[in-house]
Design a protein around this nucleic acid. Structure first.
Lengths: 220, 220
DNA sequence: AATTTGAGTGAACATATGTTCACCGAACTT
DNA sequence: AAGTTCGGTGAACATATGTTCACTCAAATT
């Protein structure tokens, strides 16, 4: 029975500011939700008490941070948006893989998804699923992602003959294909299995179809 | 306090066979789940009691038909598969719209989805969402749908230069695009709004990209 | 130094949940 | 006509849920 006063400060020696403390437990709630998703649960079926339990906090404390579960969900969506933006940023930084660019990009993306499996599991699941509010928030986020991608391609001078609206539309298609693939990536047994290779190959070929279609696109 | 014996037969005059009765309540449970989905709930968040309540049956009765909620979910997936097969069958029967075939097909599909909104809402939601079991079942069903579609296109002599595997891969892409669009169709306010027209237009253009890509596809 | 603030507590509330079980009675079998 | 089967009942169970509220006590403000 070691001493453990409510506000024990076991390892965080320096006094912690109030706003910092608040931000910390807020983050803990978010992480708790993700952790539960990681254990195979789907966000829609999580309960407030489960989350606070996982976060190591009393149920009532939840309300100091979010009005309800949808609001926590929105925070997760935002985190998803940040993640997608990071993907684009890294792509800009590293440039397009020199050889076999499509397969290269797919493998980079696959790694990216696997390293952030929880966020992608959440997005892939709630994109078509959860509450209407969440779905729309994710749609908006996906839309921004597609627009940014279109802008990047424009800057890179890829497919310069396409109108901006056509480019944007095509990026939308690429994004849905990517997010759909994320779900596949997360479900296929990782390791060099046959299934995994087939999945990657299929993904590559689908993107190739899209890009070929884009190259030959003519406005109405 | 009107008389209402447990097994009241208020309007179903002719005696009902046991198997028929069982099939009937089984169907009621399925319909109840769909009805709740129709009220904006997502399948993953439904409870056994909610469903039996909606079905007008005592909770324990559930177990006479399904081991657990996943098993009911699988029944819904199967119903979804049947629905998709019917879509193909109707497409075969009615043939391809004579003029502006792509937009025509999209409008037919839109109508089809709207008329069966509950099943499509379920599939679109649980495809990336629900339990692993459900996700895989839906993946399998989608796969069959894509294969059948490929076979139909082959028989129709559409894109005869494509190998079967390429055709199959492209149909897979079409299917994910369709199911993704189903979610959009169900969320956009129906009626002749601007949003609705834009959504349809985007969907048409995306399919067009895919088909252009298919026409110019060359094997590796 | 005295006061105010507010994140987190702990207990209580009414209500909901999944699962079990002995039981009923109509449909089936003999 | 007598006996069996089995879909559905109703009650009970232990446990889980969302929300509220007065409370604490350290950090922030005065």
């Amino acid at each position: 029975m070691a001493a453990s006063t409510p506000h024990a400060r076991v390892e965080t020696e320096p006094p912690i500011s109030r706003s910092a403390r608040k931000a910390r437990t807020r983050q803990r709630l978010i992480d708790a939700a993700l952790a539960l998703i990681g254990q195979g649960r789907s966000y829609t079926s999580l309960s407030l008490r489960e989350i606070t339990r996982e976060a190591g906090v009393v149920p009532g404390a939840f309300y100091r941070h979010f009005r309800d579960l949808d609001e926590l969900g929105l925070a997760l969506v935002e985190m998803g948006g940040v993640t997608l933006r990071r993907l684009l940023r890294e792509a800009r930084r590293d440039g397009i893989p020199p050889t076999d660019m499509l397969r290269g990009s797919v493998l980079v993306y696959k790694r990216f998804v696997e390293q952030r499996s929880l966020v992608f599991r959440f997005i892939a699941a709630e994109r078509g699923g959860g509450s209407r509010i969440l779905r729309n928030a994710i749609r908006t986020e996906d839309g921004h992602f597609a627009s940014e991608m279109a802008q990047d391609l424009r800057v890179l001078g890829v497919m310069p003959d396409l109108s901006s609206s056509a480019l944007r539309m095509i990026c939308g298609l690429v994004v849905t294909t990517m997010l759909n693939a994320a779900s596949d990536i997360l479900d296929v047994p990782s390791g060099q299995t046959v299934q995994e290779r087939e999945m990657v190959e299929n993904f590559v070929r689908q993107l190739r179809v899209i890009f070929i279609g884009a190259r030959h696109w003519r406005e109405d």
